[in-house]
Computed example of a mutant assay.
Amino acid sequence: MRAFVKPSSDSDQCELTEVAAPQIDADELLVRVKAVGVGIHDSYFLPGDAKYPYPIGIEAAGVVEEVGDSVRGHRPGDRIAFISSMQPKGGTWAEFAAVRADSLVVPVPPALDFVEAAAVPVAGNTALRAVEALQAVPSGGSLFIAGGSGAIGTLAIQVARARGWRVAASASEHNHDHMREFGAETAVDYRDPAWPDRIRTWMPGGVDAAIAVPPGTSGETLTVVRDGGALVSVSGDAVTPERGVHVQVVPHESDVRAELVRLMAEISRKEKRVVIEEVFPFGEAPAALAKVRTRRARGKVVLRVL
């Protein structure tokens, strides 16, 4: 099969080559990959026991080709989207992937194409976990999202609005209307030194909660949260809590699988949207990764494999 691989543990390169398709164990699925969600961590989020050349990637959508003997609930022909990370047999930047059945695997509704489906697992899972961690915010409460124009931010805006929360978000000025389309009441430019004042004008006393998506944004975001409020850092910034604000990283142990299945269904019915910045042919995967590394993509970058 064709795959983009890291050729050795000390290489910084990503190369397209022919490698053997993975053989599955009893607890795995063999998936024919149709589309891949591209993430900034794809080329270095690798298991310690990886065998090289190692296919990179952690997120995709495709069709189940084979089912391991001990797997229940899946069968050949199933359309699925999944996250499969740190697996010794390789990742998702390939024509086939071996996926543990206990990984995050969700069905792809018939009306949803694979390109859209591949854009949802990581961004949707992260947005849902971040919002779920703020479940103490009541209906009508307020939320600020730092980095609201990307795939995680736009999904978080929509999920929060569905809970009845009022939302403000930050991004560069040309993305403000984009965020308002998804339900943000107020949009601020993160490059404007006065943006915290604008948020406090919108919500005197500070917002009930905040989600800081990009690295390095959690500290300043903390300043617009009310005393006793809550902050979730997606990137895991180290922040010293103050004024009784509860600070945490996205709770990775939180199980939002059912909510992710529902989100997929809502996207297929056009009730919610996943934003796709650009779709690249599989052969142009390095250019897709370079685009993601700029951290300036509006939404998700996807590879079309087949």
Rank of each mutant, 00 (worst) to 15 (best):
M1V: 12
A3H: 14
D10M: 00
Q13C: 07
Q13M: 10
E15A: 07
A20P: 11
P22W: 13
A26D: 14
A35Y: 02
V36M: 04
V36P: 00
G37W: 08
G48F: 05
Y54I: 05
I56A: 14
I58M: 12
E59F: 08
A60C: 01
A60P: 04
R75I: 02
T92M: 10
A98G: 05
D102W: 12
S103H: 15
L112G: 03
V122F: 08
V122I: 15
E132V: 07
A133K: 08
G141I: 10
S142T: 15
S142C: 04
L143M: 10
L143E: 11
A146S: 15
A146I: 05
G147W: 01
A151E: 06
T154P: 01
V159W: 02
V159H: 10
A162F: 00
R166D: 13
A171D: 03
N175R: 11
F182E: 08
A184P: 12
T186Q: 15
A187T: 15
P196N: 10
D197P: 02
R200T: 14
P204N: 04
V213S: 01
G216P: 01
T217Y: 14
V224D: 00
D227N: 12
G228M: 09
G229V: 00
S235L: 06
G236W: 01
G244D: 09
Q248M: 09
V249Y: 03
R257T: 15
E266N: 10
I267D: 01
S268Y: 05
S268P: 10
R269E: 07
R269I: 00
K270V: 00
E271F: 04
E277L: 06
F280H: 08
F280L: 10
P286F: 05
L289E: 00
K291Y: 00
T294W: 11
